[in-house]
Structure formats: C-alpha cells, structure tokens
C-alpha cells in the first residue's frame, strides 16, 4: 500500500540511455542534450541500439498483449547493472511502474521488476544522483514550465524541473495558474476525444501565455507536441522546448561534452 520510498543510487560510472520513440523520431536534439549533460557529469552513456518503444501507447489503449511483445523486446537491452535513464516521465513511468504489472506471472516477472527498479527519469537523475551544478551562460529570459502528469504523479518529480531551472541565474521562472492540471495530451486520448483534449490544451496555452513568458519547457515530448503544436496552429506567442535542450543550450560553453 505505501508507495515505495525512492532511494537514489550513488553516482555511477555508466548509464543506459533509453531515448523513447518520440525523442528518436521527433526530438533527437533533446536526446542529444540529455546525453551531453550526462557526459559532462563524467558519466559514460551507453545507447542500446536495439531500443524501440517502451510499449506504453498499446498498454494505455488496452492492447496489453501487443504492449507486452514490444516491452519484452526491451528487457534484454540492459545487461549490466547500470541505471537506465529516460528523458520522459511518461515512458520512465511505464517502465518503472507498469512493467512489473505487465509481466506479472510470466517468465519475465523478475527481470521486469529488476529493470523497473533501476529506471530513472533523466532530470531527476541529473539533480538527485549526479547533483548537477548548472552555470547559466544565456541571456536573461522569462520562462514557464509544464511538468507532465506522469512526471508529477507517477514519478513524483514535480520539484525537480523548477530546482534545476532555479540554478540558472538569468532565468526568471514563472508559474502558470493551475500548473498541476493536465495539458490534454494523454496519448491516444488526444485523438479519441479531440474536443475535450482541445479544450484542455487551449486553456493550458492561455495560462502559460498569461504568465508573460514567451517560451516554456516541459519534461515530456507528448506535452510538448500538444502545447507547442496548439500555440503554433493558433498563432499564440509561445514557443516550447524539452527541458533538456533548454538546460544544455544555456550551459554549454562549446567544450562541454562531445557531440
């Protein structure tokens, strides 16, 4: 019943980088930024070539057989006992919270639980395992942040993004009204219930622009696609970025990590 207490591991020499399919296809810059931030912290990043998708889209749509087939193909990608870092609260939550359920009473149950236990959302990992110290090299700016629902509630890391951004001396982080409310993405929800999702994202964009910020960052590419896509379509003065891209761009002196 009691939610397990999160015990952070000591800073490791290596991590596995699990990119997620959205980063892979749509936001590879955010993935590269995450990798470079880790490398700058002196961590060797292993990118398993055979990674595809965590299986979440099928899982939340109810197609658990199909989700299990895809998830099973990910289980053998992490043979060493290194942490698995994921630049997404949603996909991280899928592995950490739902893999054990998905493989319950199967031959992969123990393996799935073992992998789940060493899976971390990347910003959480940077802050609380790497104890990253960021030096802001950017111009003064006002920024809003949307923490995804899975990052906030499943991974319990609502504080992480603001803490990291708080380290940036030239960034004025402003909070929108109803910051904890969902942006309306919800994976297939956005296309199964387009009007409801549309109403949610329109209000999210309004509250974000009401802060006076013209850019926002988020932990998850789903929310980013949704919020930035709505702002773009409706010509709202709001641009979005993955938080990892933002952190890297503001702190990269040009000699940080290898790229």
């Amino acid at each position: 019943m009691v939610d397990p207490i999160k015990v952070y591991p000591p800073k490791p020499t290596h991590v596995y980088f699990y990119a997620t399919c959205l980063i892979d296809m749509f936001y590879p810059d955010a993935g590269m930024a995450g990798i470079q931030l880790l490398e700058r912290e002196g961590i060797k990043v292993c990118f398993p070539e055979d990674q595809t998708c965590c299986g979440q889209p099928a899982y939340t749509s109810g197609y658990h057989d199909e989700a299990r087939v895809v998830a099973k193909a990910q289980l053998d990608l992490f043979p060493e006992n290194w942490p698995i870092v994921v630049p997404s609260g949603s996909c991280g939550g899928m592995i950490r919270k739902h893999y054990p359920d998905l493989f319950k009473h199967t031959g992969q149950e123990a393996k799935a639980s073992e992998i789940a236990a060493r899976t971390w959302e990347l910003t959480d990992f940077l802050l609380n395992v790497c104890h990253i110290k960021l030096r802001d090299l950017g111009q003064p700016t006002t920024l809003a942040m949307h923490t995804s629902c899975s990052a906030r509630r499943e991974m319990g890391i609502a504080e992480v993004g603001p803490k990291l951004l708080g380290q940036l001396s030239n960034v004025n982080l402003v909070e929108q009204v109803r910051a904890e409310e969902c942006c309306g993405f919800g994976g297939t929800f956005a296309v199964r219930h387009p009007e409801i999702s549309g109403a949610m994202v329109s209000e999210k964009v309004d509250t974000l622009t009401d802060t006076g910020a013209s850019e926002f960052v988020t932990t998850d590419c789903g929310c980013l696609m949704n919020i930035a896509g709505y702002a773009e379509k409706n010509r709202k003065p709001l641009a979005g970025q993955h938080i990892l891209s933002f952190l890297w761009e503001r702190t990269d002196s040009g000699k940080g990590g290898k790229s």
């Binding site: 939340t60 109810g62 629902c149 899975s150 906030r152 509630r153 499943e154 904890e180 409310e181 969902c182 309306g184 993405f185 919800g186 994976g187 297939t188 929800f189 956005a190 199964r192 219930h193 409801i196 999702s197 949610m200």
Partner: peptide, 10 residues
C-alpha cells in the same frame, strides 16, 4: 467511459 481520461492521475 474508460477512454474519456488522459490518465493524468489527478
């Protein structure tokens, strides 16, 4: 009914 949710967890 079960689909009418973004699974936001609130």
């Amino acid at each position: 009914l079960p689909t009418a949710s973004s699974l936001c967890g609130a």
